[in-house]
């Protein structure tokens, strides 16, 4: 982040992977809107464990945050499509194994589905993407809708930089 860091952050392979997937698989336009967010909400709960000592789901507000991300012009369209398509592929994996949609499974079964897709390159990338937005919601400035009462910052004893934003800029 200072001078050389983009060297390590930059991952040439990843978006190339998304593009190949788009070209050979159906776009998930047939995923119903409500199904889409119900599934994403369930996955977010499966990826983040609420405990007494950690910020609550409600305070992180990750679903609202993710919905906003999907509207942000500064997030590449291909990346947004990847998030949405991942829901369809997740359900395909879920049906292949249990003949049911992901949200209809019990928690241990859902975990097995996640453990299955993480073995595939798209699955690993998709889970990582969803995790990233959970942590953005939890640790970004509250102006973006997450991190209510600065719970994430308090959890990690983080002092935010000043001046803080007064409104969402993206």
């Amino acid at each position: 982040m200072y001078l050389h860091s983009r060297r390590i952050l930059f991952q040439k392979g990843i978006s190339a992977l998304c593009l190949t997937l788009f070209s050979r698989r159906l776009l998930a336009e047939n995923v119903q809107h409500s199904d889409l967010f119900t599934t994403l909400h369930t996955v977010q709960h499966d990826l983040y464990a609420e405990t007494d000592t950690m910020p609550s789901h409600e305070a992180i507000n990750a679903l609202v945050y993710l919905k906003n991300v999907l509207k942000q012009p500064r997030v590449a369209k291909a990346h947004k499509r990847f998030i949405v398509n991942g829901v369809q592929w997740l359900n395909e994996a879920s049906i292949a194994r249990y003949k049911k949609h992901y949200t209809k499974l019990a928690a241990p079964q859902r975990n097995i589905v996640l453990q299955t897709i993480v073995q595939e390159q798209w699955g690993k990338q998709w889970i990582e993407t969803l995790l990233t937005y959970i942590y953005e919601a939890m640790l970004g400035d509250p102006v973006y809708g997450g991190n209510r009462n600065e719970v994430g910052w308090k959890w990690l004893h983080h002092t935010p930089g000043k001046p803080r934003p007064t409104k969402a800029l993206v």
Binding site: M1, Q72, R74, V75, E136, L139, G140, D141, V143, Y144, P160, G161, K162, P163, R164, P165, T166, A168, L169, V170
Partner: peptide, 14 residues
Amino acid sequence: DFTKDEIAVSRRDL
């Protein structure tokens, strides 16, 4: 205009 907004500045390359 400058704030320490990690989402906008660092993650969305404002």
